[in-house]
Every structure is written in C-alpha cells, then in structure tokens.
Write a protein that binds this DNA or RNA. Structure first.
Length: 562
RNA sequence: GCCGCGUUGGUCAAUCGGUUAAGACGCCUCCCUUUCACGGAGGAAUGAGGGGUUCGAUUCCCCUACGCGGUACCA
C-alpha cells in the first residue's frame, strides 16, 4: 500500500534560479516521472522582506525552458492549492497547527523583541560559544510562556503584544532518520535551538511551513539541498508531534554544487568572477538593477543543460554521459546520487553543449540561431527558412546528415527510428537552406553564438579578407586559373560539390598547379579566412553567382594591392 | 566553539574486500584532413594521514587532518 509518489520543488522567490536549484528541480522531476508520480511547484514566500517581484515568473519560465514543467503549481493550479505559502497563510493554515503545538506542550509563546534577542546573544557569547542558542537553558532567562505565569501570558496576548511561537525542544533526545542518499543520520536535540515556528507577523517560518505543507500536499519524498540537514531534526520532531512520523516523506539531502576553484557553495559572484553563468536564464535584480547572465542566453541548449546538471552528482555507473531526458527518467535513482559536493567545471559544461549541438538536427535550434543572426544585423532571408517543398529553388546536396548518425554515446539513436517508421512520431522536416548551413558548421560550434562567425559568410560576403595569407604565393598563373574557373562555373548547369571538386582538380592538373596551392586562396575568397567546412560544399550552398562575385572581388583586391 | 555531512587524478567520476584502480572533461603527442573543426590512436595524472578488522583493504570500524554546511522572527 505504498502511497502515490508526490514530490515538490519549493523555492523562495528571492532572485534568479541558481544551477543548484535547477538540479534539485531536475532530480525531483526525474524521480516523479520514474515512479509515475506528480511534481509540484510550491512558492515559499513567507519572508515578505525578501520577496522580489518577478522572481516567481522567472522561476516558472526557467522550468519551462528546461522542459521540467510541474504538474501542479501557482500557475497551473491543482487539487492541493493554493501553492503560494503567503496565500495559504491567509487561510490560517499554519496558525492552526502552531496553536495545536502550544496546546499539546510542544511549543510556546515568546515575547522577546529582536533587540532583546540580540542583547541575549551578546550577553551570553563566549569564546567557547560564539553563538548562544535560544534553547532549553536560555529560554529560562527569556520572556516566554514557559517562564511567565499563565495570567501574565494571557494578559500579554490579550494586549496584542507581538509574539512568536517557538518549538520546545527537550535536551538529550536522539533524533534519527534515514536519508535516501546518506543512510541513517542521527542528531541530538541538545545542539539545536527552539526554532521560531510562527513569526510575529503571523507568517510561518520555513520549518513549520515545510512540514505542514508537505503533509497537506501529501508529499511522499522530499528532496532539498544539504544545507538543510542540520535543521532536519526540527522537521522530524514536528512531524512526530503533528502528523505522526510514519506519515513523513522520505528525505534526501542533495550534495552541494561547489565553486570550481577553492571550496564552498557556487555563487553568482563566482560566475561573474570566473566568467560563466550560474543562473538558468538572464536575471536582473529589480531592486539593485544588477544583471546576471543565464545559461540560456550564453547559448546552451536546454537538453545539454539538463544533461550536465543530471551528471553533476549522479551517474548510472555505466560510463554513459550523454542522456536524453527520457533516458534519465528511465535510469535515475536517488541511491546513485553522490554524498560529496561536486565542483562545477564550465569546460565540461561546454563539452556537453557541443555534443548536443552535434547530435541534434539543426532544426532543433535553428530558430534561436536565426534570432542571434538577426540581432547581429544579419537577418536570414525568408526563402532560406522555407522547407525545400515550399520553394522552387533546388537545394544542392551537401555533406549528408542522415538521422541514423544522430546517436548517443552507446550508439543508440537519439531519434526514435522505430517510432518514426511506425508513423508514431512525425518525420523531422527536410532541412531548409539555413539548417543545412548549420548542419555543415555545427562541429565547430560549442555555444550557439559561435554559429555567427562560423556561418555568417553564407549569408553575406566576408567583412574582412585575409589577403596576407594569399599574397605571398599569388602569381599570374593563379589569376588565370581563377578566371577560367569562373568561366567554368558560369557554364555549369547546377552545382554539385563533388563534381565541382573533380573539375577543379582537373583544371589544376591541366595547368600544372598543385590543387593545394589553389584551395586556400579559393577558401579565403569565399570565407575571408582559414576556417570553415569543405570549400566545395560552401560553393554549392552560396550558389554560383555569389561564388563568382566573391572570386572577382578578391582578385581585384589582389591586383590593386602590391 | 558546538553539531552534522563529506574526502579516489586539475575537474566529473567507476569500483558494492581480491582489478594492471574504468571512463569522461581539460592538457600533451601522433594520425586523418591541401583550412578550422570533427573523428581516430596514444600519453602524463588518483585512493588525505595514522591506527585497527581481515588471508587480503580504495572499499568495513576508530582517530586525526582538511573542507563544507548549520548554529536568524532567511530560505
């Protein structure tokens, strides 16, 4: 009679969505899908002082970009709403449980002001104990319902004196639970303080809210960052007092993602300092105006982002590194998540992206890349975006890209060919000219913006031409050769890369010039520099008119500059 | 300080007591390529230290060191 798997991601809307946050989402998502369960988004906005407008929308949009959509959440609704804790508070949900705890002697009222607390910490601070806790000893010296006589407590309450409700922890109690990653973990209540459960403004703290909401939302498994481990005993005790420990979800405390150099949690600062993104998408803090770049805008594919995050702290033991989301769903298990934190390696992250760019058909990212070109003032002509069937201009064959070659590292096709043949999924569209260009150069692109320098010359003549690479070996014979080559091109009925190449080499042989002596100049005429795919594929794609124009143009430059 | 969690190459990591301690990223060398890449072949590089347990420890236990996290009316 195992209950249905229900997991949640519960961020507080205080800023951009951090790498570690996305990974927590991912593990939640994978676990839910793996077990046919639900994945819930819950907004923990109990600290009105830290609330940042727009952060919630940003989080939802980030999840959408990653393809990790919740089944329930503030934007989707669901049977367990509302999904914002501020709205749940308005319904008196948390207060009810806080009062119940007080009635049962597991919690108490505390009237201490922030100033009094500060004074207490100052007063009891010693070299041995730099941070005195509000606990079973010190609470005896504070203003709370445990010390005050009941009448006085009632009077303060009746007067509307601000108060909080604190959990009452007895010393020397062992609290043990089984973590899905770490196994059995034990704490003594002696080390933990009487945490505030309900704040003076009536809002619950995380400690109360997480327990109450996990219960009310019937959460079966609760995953969160390792930084929560020390407060786990409070949550266990709350479960014990409120709903019964047997009803408690199974916990898993995820290892931290560490900065690449040194140690410590990866922060936005580290990204700025070391030059890589830390957030999923661009984020500008509305209050400080401080911008932060995202993986999306840096040119990462969501497939790659999800893939690299999955492997940061988990692996299936097989050595496979490239996983589709479907494969991850099929293979993910919490007991293969590492205990230790992992340093983030941006070089490896880029490798994942490169792999995904290479493996995916260009149609998977052509729209984003087209947008990048447009931003750079190189709009892609509409006819280059038409499907071959929609245009009468035939596309020349270039280096073929067959779906069979799109495979993961084990050789299994990423494109489900069986499903394709059975007609279960629509066939990928025949690539248009733009996509052919991208397919031709994608081996050279690690990040999406790199398509611009690698492919711009297909859409406009090169801005600069590296004449210095040609001049030293340029002579009249070569000039004659190219003049003749232009004539041949003009006569050619259509351009086929390999036929062109054969013709070119025949002509070179007839003139007793080594083909290599001519290939580089030709490349520079077309591309502007010493890079790019096979020259004859380029000619086939830019067409003979443009090819002739560029050759003539460069020859002119060569003649006029000594 | 106290409490907790960690610790295999520079980084991600496999190993569930017996291995020449995988693989990947990065780096280096070579091959392929009349460019740049891609691809292929090879190379350098690892069990924090000390005690146990055991016929045998990277693996199990303890101690130390180091790192990290927590120690808020923040999450």
């Amino acid at each position: 009679m195992s209950k249905k798997v229900r997991v949640r991601f519960a961020p507080s809307p205080t800023g951009g969505l951090h790498l570690g946050g996305v990974r927590t989402v991912l593990y939640n998502y994978l676990f839910a899908r793996r077990h046919g369960g639900d994945f819930i988004l819950r907004i923990e906005d109990t600290d009105q002082g830290r609330y940042v407008p727009g952060a919630e929308e940003y989080i939802i949009e980030s999840l959408r970009w990653c393809g990790l959509e919740p089944d329930e959440g503030p934007h989707k609704g669901g049977a367990y709403g509302p999904y914002r804790q501020s709205e749940r508070k308005a319904r008196g949900i948390y207060e009810k449980y806080a009062r119940q705890l007080v009635e049962h002697g597991h919690a108490y009222y505390a009237f201490d002001t922030p100033e009094e607390l500060e004074a207490m910490r100052e007063k009891y601070k010693t070299a041995d104990n730099p941070s005195p806790q509000y606990n079973h000893t010190l609470r005896k010296k504070m203003r709370n319902s445990l010390q005050l006589d009941p009448a006085e407590t009632q009077r303060l309450l009746a007067d509307g004196t601000p108060y909080v409700i604190r959990i009452k922890l007895e010393p020397d109690e062992e609290v043990t639970f089984t973590d899905m990653i770490r196994g059995e973990v034990t704490f003594s209540t002696t080390g933990v303080d009487d945490k505030v459960l309900l704040k003076a403004d009536g809002m619950p703290t995380y400690h109360l809210a997480v327990v109450v909401d996990d219960h009310l939302m019937e959460i079966s498994h609760a995953f969160r960052g390792e930084e929560w481990l020390p407060s786990a005993p409070v949550h266990i005790l709350l479960w014990r007092y409120l709903f019964g420990e047997d009803k408690m979800p199974q916990w898993a405390h995820l290892p931290l993602i560490l900065k690449p150099d040194g140690n410590g949690k990866l922060s936005k600062r580290d990204g700025d300092r070391l030059g890589f993104p830390v957030f999923a998408m661009n984020w500008t803090d509305p209050r400080t105006g401080e911008p932060a770049t995202g993986f999306r805008e840096t040119g990462f594919l969501p497939q790659a982002f999800v893939n690299l995050l999955a492997l940061l702290g988990w692996n299936d033991g097989s050595g496979q590194e490239i996983f589709t989301r479907e494969e991850l769903v099929a293979k993910f298990s919490m007991d293969r998540v590492h205990k230790g934190g992992a340093k983030f390696d941006f070089e490896k992250a880029k490798w994942f992206n490169h792999e995904w760019i290479k493996r995916l058909p260009a149609s998977a990212y052509a729209p984003q890349v087209a947008a990048l070109f447009a931003e750079k003032g190189i709009p892609i002509p509409a006819h280059d975006l038409l499907r071959p069937a929609e245009t009468e201009i035939p596309l020349p064959p270039v280096t073929p890209l067959v779906p069979e070659t799109i495979t993961d590292i084990s050789g299994a096709p990423l494109l489900d060919l069986a499903a394709l043949e059975a007609g279960l999924i629509p066939p990928p569209p025949a690539p248009n000219r733009f996509e052919r260009v991208l397919d031709l150069v994608k081996d050279r692109c690690t990040l999406l913006p790199e398509f611009i320098p690698q492919a711009a010359f297909f859409f406009q003549p090169p801005a600069t031409i590296d004449l210095d690479a040609v001049k030293p070996k340029w002579n009249e014979a070569k000039g004659l050769f190219f003049a003749e080559f232009i004539q041949q091109l003009e006569l050619a009925p259509n351009l086929v890369a390999h036929a062109l190449e054969a013709e070119f080499k025949e002509m070179a042989a007839a003139k007793a010039i080594k083909p290599g002596e001519l290939l580089m100049p030709l490349r520079i005429m077309l591309v502007g520099g010493k890079f790019g795919p096979h020259v004859f594929d380029i000619i086939a794609l830019i067409g003979k008119d443009e090819t002739i124009r560029r050759i003539r143009h460069t020859i002119q430059l060569l003649n006029f500059t000594p």
